[in-house]
């Protein structure tokens, strides 16, 4: 029988757990294209960029087309409306959660865009949300606009008929 244990008289007993937090502090530089997109949020606009080769519109844009490998120069303002391509009802609490559960995280494909991004869907019963549902952005009050997606409070149903599957099947 091996003896590997140190015996303490401390009433707190032996240490069995060790907190080992890992922390990384860094600066994120958005670059010119993403900075334009972020500035758009400050004005209450979705700003994307169009590829000169394939004509796809990326929002947010990283400044180049991943398919054609060319720089994007044409700026595009997108509409406030879009389609839910897919979604998830979040029921699981986790550290740092800022939204009350349950809530819906949806992938939103803005009209005229060729890239979807994640958005909160509200003003909608959980069981009503569906693929193809038409939604519109609800922005924060003008004085609260900031250069980040936090300017979009959430997306809500427009009540229009659902988008046809063919219109978003490539964006799932």
């Amino acid at each position: 029988m091996s003896d590997q244990t140190y015996v303490t008289s401390d009433p707190r007993g032996s240490i069995t757990q060790l907190a080992t937090p890992s922390r990384l502090e860094y600066f994120f530089t958005a670059g010119t294209s993403l900075s334009k997109n972020l500035r758009g949020y400050q004005r209450g606009q979705f700003i994307g960029q169009r590829c000169p080769v394939c004509s796809k519109v990326y929002v947010p844009s990283r400044g180049s087309c991943p398919v054609d490998g060319v720089a994007l120069t044409e700026e595009v303002e997108l509409k406030n409306t879009g389609t839910v391509t897919t979604f998830c009802v979040v029921n699981v609490p986790f550290a740092g959660q800022s939204i009350k559960i349950p809530y819906i995280a949806g992938q939103i494909l803005l009209d005229g865009a060729n890239l979807s991004f994640m958005g909160l869907i509200q003003e909608c019963e959980l069981e009503e949300v569906r693929m193809g549902m038409r939604v519109e952005a609800v922005w924060v009050d003008k004085e609260d606009l900031v250069p980040s997606l936090a300017s979009v409070k959430y997306f809500r149903p427009t009540g229009e008929p659902d988008a046809a599957y063919e219109t978003y099947q490539e964006y799932l």
Binding site: L18, A19, T20, F28, A30, L34, L38, A95
Partner: peptide
């Protein structure tokens, strides 16, 4: 022109120490 923002990434790990 360009936005820069400080970010912090933190994981509150804890691990079991084992007997030794």
């Amino acid at each position: 022109e360009i936005f820069t923002s400080p970010h912090v990434l933190e994981f509150p790990y804890s691990r079991s120490t084992g007997p030794v």
